[in-house]
């Protein structure tokens, strides 16, 4: 298959970027999207041009490194799929694809499609510690966790922190990310002790990092490759209310 690409090229945050058009011919539809970009980069290097910078690591959809916009959708058109797990067969021959970095004031562009998402790390850091026993693995049955809580906490912990939620949001809000991190800890007994301070600190850091606020439209969940649900945002709101009332 042949593919036409419009890729955002920007050398650093302070310089202006622009779209550059590339064409790839005879692409195997069964290769992954990132492999297609690898082929493009090999070609660019051979032609002594700058390769396109994009983030990736595990290419298994679990590390959260990859992610950019394909035709206006974070991680592309396939539901519940990171861009590394996306294959060229999801597209048609001669498709026009526009690739852009995740755009948000809190995600400055490093180069091309790669953005600095350390603001997410700082939100996590402000959450403080969790009471864990750092000795031997404790007996699993000592702390009893209801099955429903364990399942819910697992679903929240499935967030890979890729930033697709911020890119999908009209306000560049990090509420889905922050709320999933707050949720998976507050649902478990190990995370309960610091729950009240944690929610206040993490939300304050989220604000300080310059993310927008939530207008509860649900665009984030719709685009999330891990299908993190709006229930997490509800839980964050509840945790914040609880932190004041109790």
């Amino acid at each position: 298959m042949n593919i036409n690409l419009n890729i955002w090229r920007q050398t650093k945050e302070s310089t202006a970027g622009k779209f550059v058009r590339y064409r790839l011919e005879n692409i195997d539809p069964n290769i992954s999207f990132l492999e297609m970009l690898d082929i493009l980069n090999n070609k660019l290097i051979k032609e002594k041009q700058e390769p396109v910078v994009f983030d990736h690591d595990c290419r298994e959809g679990i590390c959260g490194s990859c992610g950019f916009m394909i035709n206006g959708q974070p991680h592309g058109p396939q539901k519940a799929t990171t861009v590394c797990q996306l294959h060229m067969r999801a597209f048609q021959n001669e498709d026009e694809l526009t690739l852009e970095p995740f755009r948000a004031a809190s995600f400055p562009v490093i180069k091309d499609l790669s953005v600095d998402r350390r603001s997410f790390d700082r939100i996590i850091l402000s959450g403080g510690y969790v009471d864990i026993n750092t000795g031997e693995a404790p007996e699993a049955n000592l702390i009893k966790v209801p099955k429903t809580n364990a399942d819910e906490a697992f679903l929240s912990a499935a967030c890979i922190g890729c930033g697709a939620c911020v890119a999908a949001c009209k306000n560049s809000s990090a509420m889905l990310f922050t709320s999933s991190k707050i949720s998976h800890l507050s649902l478990l007994p190990q995370g309960k002790k610091e729950a009240k301070e944690r929610v206040l600190k993490m939300v304050a850091t989220m604000d300080d990092e310059g993310f927008g606020s939530c207008t509860n439209t649900g665009a984030c969940s719709a685009e999330c490759p891990k299908e993190i649900s709006q229930a997490n945002i509800v839980r964050l709101n509840k945790e914040l209310i609880k932190s004041v009332i109790d």
Partner: peptide, 27 residues
Amino acid sequence: LWLKNKRAISKTPSYSITSTPRASRYT
């Protein structure tokens, strides 16, 4: 909140197909 949201979005507009409910955009 509106001012905060304005500051949060990137200065480069994104080519986007994500459509949010009109009632929310015009609040």
